[in-house]
Amino acid sequence: MTNQAERLPFFVYGTLRPGETNYARTLRGRTATEEPARISGALLYEGPGYPYATAGPAHAVVHGELIHPRDADYDAVRTALDLLEGYTPGAPEGTGNLYERVATEAVRPDGRTVRAWVYLAAEPLATRLRATGTPVAGGHWTGRAARKSPR
């Protein structure tokens, strides 16, 4: 089991990606490195303005970015992300967390893996998404590109 205070990088897949609104509010100027990555065993669903990821079958993939906060900013970044994602560390499951912060294996472009935090939809939201949600094809959310494309 991973300690919730462990200093892992963050795997982000929606509005926390570079160029998105919550990146600008929460991460800009506070990261040491950012790189494309993917995780397996998770499904991505459309949401109102942002996506949700849930645990899924082993073959499912979500694409995003691996964010390494600057050392001096790590605790503040983790706190800000927990707040943004509606996650309270140590809260009993089912007590109102919108997301759960869990450790996962992220795969870098060169194939190397790194343990990282990812925010997955908490139950019962995850159950509802699996039953009635709209999956994001290919596990790659393009919120910014979709908003800018002509209709």
Score class of each variant (00 low, 15 high):
Ala5Phe: 05
Ala5Leu: 09
Glu6Lys: 07
Glu6Val: 13
Phe11Ile: 10
Phe11Glu: 02
Tyr13Gln: 08
Leu16Cys: 11
Gly19Pro: 14
Glu20Asp: 15
Asn22Leu: 05
Asn22Phe: 01
Asn22Trp: 04
Tyr23Leu: 03
Ala24Asn: 12
Ala24Arg: 15
Arg25Lys: 15
Arg28Phe: 06
Arg28Trp: 01
Arg28Ile: 09
Arg30Val: 12
Thr31Ile: 10
Thr31Trp: 00
Ala32Gly: 06
Thr33Val: 04
Glu34Gly: 04
Glu35Phe: 00
Arg38Cys: 06
Gly41Asp: 04
Leu43Gly: 03
Leu43Arg: 10
Leu44Glu: 05
Gly47Phe: 03
Gly49Pro: 07
Tyr50Phe: 11
Pro51Phe: 06
Ala53Ile: 07
Ala53Asn: 00
Ala53Asp: 02
Thr54Pro: 02
Gly56Glu: 03
Gly56Cys: 07
Pro57Ile: 01
Ala58Pro: 13
Val61Met: 00
His63Phe: 07
Glu65Val: 12
Leu66Asp: 05
Arg70Leu: 15
Arg70Asp: 06
Asp71Gly: 10
Ala72Ile: 14
Asp73Trp: 05
Asp75Asn: 10
Asp75Cys: 08
Val77Gly: 10
Val77Met: 09
Ala80Tyr: 01
Ala80Leu: 09
Ala80Lys: 05
Asp82Leu: 13
Leu83Lys: 12
Leu84Ala: 12
Leu84Cys: 10
Gly86Met: 09
Thr88Pro: 04
Thr88Cys: 08
Pro89Met: 14
Pro89Arg: 11
Gly90Lys: 13
Ala91Gln: 14
Pro92Gln: 08
Pro92Tyr: 08
Glu93Ile: 15
Gly96Leu: 12
Glu100Ala: 11
Glu100Asn: 15
Arg101Asp: 14
Arg101Cys: 15
Arg101Met: 15
Ala103Met: 13
Ala103Lys: 05
Thr104Lys: 11
Thr104Cys: 15
Glu105Thr: 15
Arg108Leu: 13
Arg108Tyr: 10
Gly111Gln: 09
Val114Ser: 08
Val114Glu: 14
Arg115Asn: 15
Arg115Leu: 12
Ala116Met: 07
Ala116Asn: 07
Ala116Pro: 11
Trp117Cys: 06
Leu120Gly: 00
Ala121Trp: 04
Ala122Asp: 13
Ala122Arg: 04
Ala122Leu: 14
Glu123Pro: 12
Leu125Thr: 14
Leu129Ala: 06
Arg130Phe: 01
Thr132Ser: 08
Gly133Met: 07
Gly133Val: 11
Val136Lys: 01
Ala137Lys: 04
Ala137Cys: 02
Gly138Asp: 08
Trp141Tyr: 15
Thr142Asp: 07
Gly143Ile: 00
Arg144Ala: 12
Arg147Glu: 09
Lys148Pro: 02
Arg151Thr: 06
Arg151Gln: 08
Arg151Ile: 06
